[in-house]
Nucleic acid binder design. Sequence first.
DNA 1: TAGATTGTTAATCGATTAACAATC
DNA 2: TAGATTGTTAATCGATTAACAATC
Lengths: 211, 211
Amino acid sequence: MKEKPIISNAVIRRLPRYRRYLKELKKSTDKVSSKELSELTGYTASQIRQDLNNFGDFGQQGYGYNVDVLFEGINAILGLGKSYNMVMAGGGNLGKAIANHNYYYKTGFIVTAIFDKNPELIGKKIRDIEIYDYLDMKDYIEENGIDIGVICTTKDSAQEVADIFCSAGVRGIWNFAPVDLQIPDNVCIENVHLSDALYSLAYYMNNTKSE
Amino acid sequence: MKEKPIISNAVIRRLPRYRRYLKELKKSTDKVSSKELSELTGYTASQIRQDLNNFGDFGQQGYGYNVDVLFEGINAILGLGKSYNMVMAGGGNLGKAIANHNYYYKTGFIVTAIFDKNPELIGKKIRDIEIYDYLDMKDYIEENGIDIGVICTTKDSAQEVADIFCSAGVRGIWNFAPVDLQIPDNVCIENVHLSDALYSLAYYMNNTKSE
DNA sequence: TAGATTGTTAATCGATTAACAATC
DNA sequence: TAGATTGTTAATCGATTAACAATC
């Protein structure tokens, strides 16, 4: 196997942000310089050039970057060409919102089924997505080649759900429960710890320089 | 004014995580060492001691840290003693979920009102929180001393909402819209860019070492 | 006292920024 | 060609880790 250079996490986190600005830029222009991107994103021009250079030959000296090429390039790096099948564990409020929140459907992330333990929810639908019995989740994942599992349960059920996800073969987990989960090395995880974010916000509200 | 040492953002982001583990530990033990915390959190013991030392005298040599003292200490640092009044702009799916998601109510973050432009939503309730006309938002914030504004609108309305929030005097913004917002220096912002997180996850799913 | 574990300094590592040669 | 802007190396900065003296 070819040795790919290891790209730091910090770089990867910036890519979706570049992507957002490029998507806007596409509407009005063909080219963009690192300096212009710097003014938009707030990153230094130097950092932007460093970041993009990790992936090869996007720019052209004396010209800048072609917006379309760069946008599509970042899509390809992130893996946004293909589509991803997702299932969700937990059809309560949070699950409902995430399943309804159609923003990322456009980029190919599709929730195909929701699973819950609550008999009152089983059989109902969120959008056109059916809520099934939690006991059938593992089989469903195996039979339908699910790529990503979304955890919208309470923190007490989250590890159990993660275990089922992993043993059934998902490759990624999007976790909204406020716990850190134990998962095997070959499964990727992205945590959205909402209350952690709120607590950091509180800190900064109480510790701003202006006084 | 006394010069407080500037604590790096990386440290602040780890505090809520320490807090979560300490909350669990409180149930079973009085004391914890940096080594034990390291095993739980995955941070190195050295880093934990460095982090905690930013804030003074939590530990005791030869003993470790008192779990209660440390837990309360971190609460105090984050500013979790007091309560925070919040309003939400956007009573759609995402807003509904966040308003329903009661996890952070316990720590004093209380949504007191929701505002929307949609006449079909105005007058309805989410939980016991009423949805009001968006036009009344500014007055409400000013009259009720609101601390935090939550943005659950589409990306196209988000900047407008942020402007109203800031001019009405909120001190913090919790933004769920997929845009970066312009805000004055004295207002703090915490962005939850859900799709950005999903795109990073996709990257790692396509670029894991195991192949 | 001996053992344990912090507080804190010093060393290392990694990420960001600056600078400039390459080149379109 | 002259001007612009990247690609890329070197310098700087900051964060993490290691080490150990202080001390409970």
